[in-house]
């Protein structure tokens, strides 16, 4: 099964400056993405600041149609999101 996921996130490196104020924009990036089918983890990703804005992730796992796949992420500021999809 091939999974393709798009996440909505600024993925700030902490190195960019706000052009108007000259102040550094604080780092804000996804640190961890976990994909699970039921209780079983099928993929786990650790990310740094070099992952592009609004991250795209694709991976493959052995499973079957009808699996309920959950993808969660958590960022360095403690924000998180979870999406669930049925595998077709």
């Amino acid at each position: 099964m091939t999974v393709k996921a798009l996440m909505s996130h600024p993925m700030e490196t902490g190195l960019r400056k706000n052009k108007k104020t000259g102040k550094k924009i604080p780092a804000h990036f996804i640190e961890e993405v976990i994909a699970k089918v039921g209780d079983k983890t099928v993929m786990e990703a650790y990310w740094g600041t070099a992952i592009s804005k609004n991250p795209y992730l694709s991976f493959k796992y052995s499973g079957s149609k009808g699996d309920v796949l959950t993808v969660s992420w958590i960022d360095n500021q403690g924000e998180s999101a979870t999406e669930t999809a049925k595998v077709k």
């Binding site: 983890t41 099928v42 993929m43 786990e44 650790y46 740094g48 070099a50 991976f59 796992y61 052995s62």
Partner: peptide
């Protein structure tokens, strides 16, 4: 940039 643990996946 990133690290991926496969957990038996392809």
């Amino acid at each position: 940039a990133a690290s991926f643990n496969m957990h038996g996946s392809e």
